[in-house]
Design a binder for these strands. Structure first.
Lengths: 147, 147
DNA sequence: TTTGCTGCAAATGTTTTGCAATATC
DNA sequence: GATATTGCAAAACATTTGCAGCAAA
């Protein structure tokens, strides 16, 4: 756990970014909330407990930085704000199931898409470098409640 | 062409929505720009030529209405504004190739995904009702310029 | 000590809303 | 004539930016 945070800090340090307490605390928030898809405001709320004087602008700037470095993934679920998650390079491709009732986001991994990606690129004269797949529907819980 | 506009107006009329010139002119803008992915501001610009007194708020309200009725699809390409396109029920599933250089959006249709959709739903206890797929990369033109 | 970072407040850009006036049915 | 719809201006909301002060190296 601590080792993971350390590794990330080292990664920043290697690129000559300063290791400020604000950056540490934001990174820690992601380490502690691995499965979440956090918005800037979410992070701000979490981080304010440990570091009450942090400014929202700093959160935004840090998220930008971490996303540029590839440490975070910036995603858009269509709810009007960006959300961020740890860019776990092990699980290379993972996608999202978005519940239209409660808004909960589940993840799923799938490699079948790489095939599709290649084929679509060839057929359309397009060099595909990334893809994003979202399925919309109802999670089992909401589906049960509705029935 | 005119027939298509008529059909849409009838659809509004049947649901007791008033056929205002503003609504007609906005619908016409979509009929005339079938292959585009238009933002509210885009529509506002187009429509202002025929109806200079229209307000931007009316454009937003009309787009909301048409999207709710299923006449338009509201989409988010991550460029900070919603974009709308005709919901052409013939081409049931079509997806987007987004050029990371010039921002142009090409479409492609694919039915292979329905399979995937079913399988993912089953494996994750999720009732999938829609999906959205975006491929990011470089269109042939930009790819050529870069090489 | 030097520069990069921060917090604050103001600015930005898109979308929404309150309200009085207006136009459709 | 009743009520939905409009235009305008202001508000809301997420995000960005300018800048003076501060802190990591």
């Amino acid at each position: 756990m601590t080792g993971e945070l350390q590794a990330l800090l080292t990664r920043l340090h290697e690129k000559d970014y300063k290791l400020t307490p604000q950056r540490k605390v934001i990174l820690k928030a992601f380490v502690d909330n691995k499965d979440e898809h956090l918005s800037a405001e979410d992070i701000y709320g979490i981080v304010k407990e440990q570091y009450p004087d942090i400014g929202l602008a700093t959160v935004y700037r840090t998220l930008d930085l971490l996303a540029e470095l590839g440490i975070l993934l910036r995603m858009n679920f269509g709810d009007g704000r960006f959300r961020y998650e740890f860019s776990n390079s092990d699980v290379h491709q993972h996608h999202h199931l978005i519940c239209m009732e409660c808004g909960r986001v589940q993840e799923f991994a799938d490699d079948l898409l790489e095939d599709l990606e290649r084929r679509v690129g060839e057929e359309n004269g397009f060099r595909v470098v990334d893809h994003q797949v979202k399925f919309y529907g109802y999670c089992s819980e909401c589906d049960r409640k509705k029935a």
